[in-house]
Design a protein around this nucleic acid. Structure first.
Lengths: 236, 236
DNA sequence: AGGTACGAAATCGTATACGAAACATACTGA
DNA sequence: TCAGTATGTTTCGTATACGATTTCGTACCT
């Protein structure tokens, strides 16, 4: 008879969604930005979003502030928030920053990357190579992220790892991939991936790996820059 | 003649305080953490702080979320916020991250650092040398920040610069300076500063400067670690 | 007609209020 | 005596409401 008392019930079946409404709002808005529903420059009005999501404005407000901190939206006091644009100069800054933190993360991860990881990364890279034929920039970019994730996710320093994730996030918010603009870069990229894998396999020292990873990204940036001749602010 | 029309008057003289109350709350709480009024582990209760500052809980809440994003406070859902502790492992992560971003920022700044800057930095370093006699860790740490600020503030990439600032912020929240724990390190530090200045003066290449700046910080970290033998997770 | 000043609408910022979750404590039953 | 449950208190999470600020449209003056 007493057995029923121990079960405090499962929080009402339909409420397993996600933590707070702030969190839900954050996820929802972010998704719409990445997915393109909210295009750059789009004006994010608190009340409108709140009504749309069925929440009050308070959680929405908090979500937007979080997105601001991540650089996905631009916020102006007493005016409102807009989806951050694809300002080429911003793209440059983001890529440069990412080249540095990702390089470091990859180097720090390297000793912890096992054979299984290498194999997985190589498989992804093979898919990318296939992808070069009937070129699909979006798919290619997806695989690219998968590839690099394998290499840096073992980074033991959570702060650095977080910075890497933020960088990728920002890039994701730029609707079309870099490779759409610089398709030629894709070939080199795949080759550099293999090179990077060899370095890690052979237990190269951290500095070498870091430099390679950083250069891999700077090269993409440079390719983009020479395409759009947006000035020479190349990463070191 | 038309110029006069553009001036909408100075917003009422007494209201130059600071933008929003959220901002004020943010500054106030941060100050109390850095200054030590709120010691690590201290429980930040929204209502209490709000009453204390004379605001409502809403701006306070937002301020605390910002501080959480910067890592100054730890936040747990439905439980509350506490001032982030001096967890040695966290200190390690912060220092390692800072070594990387600060190194990069310094290297990127180097070409933009003029003679006047060098002179200023050298003056600060001289003060630090003086400071070595009757050693004052707090003052020394202040000067240390001044010195490095000169070297990285010209960094053209605002994202990286922001990351550097955040790192310094977190370190500042650790009440007593590193040099209190490792006073011997102070001497070497001053010498390394001079070395760094020479490199920049002579127009050394970015990679060399970056490495030197990064090593300068890693060395401080290592000194701390060997003092507390907190395991060997040394930066690269 | 051009530009300025005023006013209304829109939107944000903050206060207050209430419901929900977590923690501490006292009580009941074996 | 002790485990487990019930209750109370604290504190957070969110909704609603109102005041403050900006922006835009319109009428007026030169």
């Amino acid at each position: 008879m007493t057995e029923t008392t121990t079960v405090p019930a499962a929080e009402s079946v339909s409420e397993i969604t996600a933590g707070s409404k702030s969190e839900q709002a954050y996820q929802a808005i972010k998704a719409r930005i990445v997915e393109g529903t909210y295009t750059p420059g789009y004006r994010l009005v608190l009340a409108a979003i709140a009504k749309d999501l069925g929440f009050s404005v308070v959680p929405v407000r908090e979500a937007i502030r979080r997105l601001e901190a991540e650089g996905l939206v631009k916020f102006e006091r007493n005016v409102g928030a807009t989806v951050a644009g694809i300002d080429p100069i911003e793209y440059l800054y983001t890529m440069q920053t990412l080249s540095i933190v990702e390089g470091a993360a990859t180097a720090l991860s390297a000793p912890l990357v096992g054979e299984a990881d290498i194999a997985r990364a190589r498989a992804v890279n093979a898919e990318m190579r296939d992808c070069l034929e009937h070129f699909d920039p979006v798919r290619f970019t997806r695989l690219n992220q998968d590839f690099h994730s394998v290499l840096f996710e073992h980074c033991p320093n959570p702060h650095i790892l977080d910075l890497v994730h933020r960088g990728w996030n920002r890039l994701a918010s730029l609707r079309s991939s870099t490779f759409r603009f610089v398709p030629g870069r894709a070939h080199e990229s795949v080759d550099e991936h293999e090179n990077l894998l060899r370095l890690i396999e052979s237990g190269a020292d951290a500095d070498t790996i870091e430099k390679a990873a950083r250069l891999h990204r700077s090269a993409t940036l440079d390719a983009y820059l020479s395409q759009t001749n947006a000035g020479s602010l190349s990463a070191q």
